[in-house]
């Protein structure tokens, strides 16, 4: 920090006050959720709502994790993790390979295939959800991990991103590898893949969160509560009719649902920096 220009005076204090206020405003709902997850049900429904954590932290979280409302939250977290990781790794593997094919090989219809992939970018999941459901149902993949993962695994966005990245890699590199005797897949593994590390890490974060936050698709194809994912599971916790919602457990579940994406972002951030600085092997 010594290299930075030091600015002093009222302006600095005002700036910081403004920033702190902004953080507080954004953080407040999360704080409320946390408070609600540490008190008892009667305390929540009796106005005014408490603003300081209660003493039910362990009880509420244990109840959420072990029993939940329909399904233990631990089970839903595991389902979500399998789905999000499956989608993230699957998308990365498929899009890396398809971008490799499109950029480095001349085959008939290469441009056509690229544009076909690109076109699917314009079709959101919702548009093709009925035919997709039909296909998945006929394959007998309802209430299964493959059913959760496969329909979401192809990614035009990631293919496009890797295509753009591969196109910035000088042709001479591929030629040098060819002169060195590397076959195409060897070039892919030894040179292209390590060079894409930072892109893969960045994409992993985005895709993990994308997979984690899937709502509509799991809602459609998982009727068995033991296959519920966490994001749709929260919704399933709301009672229908006149039942009383168990707000402390729901809030605890919400906070638990947020945890993995936050962890992924924080951990991968370190990997970004290592990828960018990259001092040792």
């Amino acid at each position: 920090m010594s290299g930075m220009v030091e600015k002093r005076g009222v302006g600095l204090w005002l700036t910081h006050a403004g920033l702190i206020l902004g953080v507080l405003v954004i953080f407040f709902p999360i704080w409320l959720a946390f408070v609600a997850s540490t008190v008892t049900q009667p305390e929540i429904v009796r106005p005014p709502m408490p603003l300081l954590p209660g003493d039910q932290f362990f009880e509420n979280y244990r109840e959420a994790l072990v029993s939940g409302v329909n399904t233990p939250v631990a089970r839903m977290l595991a389902n979500s993790a399998v789905m999000a990781l499956g989608i993230a790794f699957g998308k990365i593997a498929i899009s890396l390979l398809s971008a490799f094919a499109i950029v480095y090989f001349r085959f008939p219809g290469r441009q056509l295939f690229f544009w076909l992939i690109f076109l699917t970018l314009m079709l959101p999941v919702e548009v093709r959800i009925v035919p997709t459901y039909e296909v998945v149902a006929r394959f007998g993949m309802l209430n299964s991990y493959p059913g959760l993962i496969f329909p979401l695994i192809a990614s035009a966005t990631a293919t496009f991103l890797f295509r753009q990245f591969f196109m910035t890699v000088p042709d001479e590199l591929a030629e040098a590898a060819r002169v060195d005797g590397a076959r195409p897949m060897r070039f892919f593994w030894d040179i292209l893949l390590p060079m894409s590390r930072t892109n893969i890490a960045a994409l992993f974060v985005i895709l993990f969160i994308y997979g984690w936050n899937q709502y509509l698709w799991p809602l459609l194809i998982t009727t068995d509560p033991s296959m519920n994912t966490i994001v749709m599971g929260i919704k399933q916790m709301f009672p229908s009719g006149d039942d009383v919602a168990d707000w402390p457990v729901i809030m605890a579940t919400s906070l638990l649902a947020m945890l993995p994406p936050v962890l992924v972002v924080i951990l991968m951030q370190k990997l970004f920096i290592r990828g960018l600085v990259d001092t040792e092997k």
């Binding site: 001479e172 590199l173 030629e175 040098a176 590898a177 030894d190 040179i191 060079m195 990259d278």
Partner: peptide
Amino acid sequence: NIAMVFQNYALYPH
């Protein structure tokens, strides 16, 4: 059994 030196060196950056 040839070896080639490229204009932009084409060294493997990683």
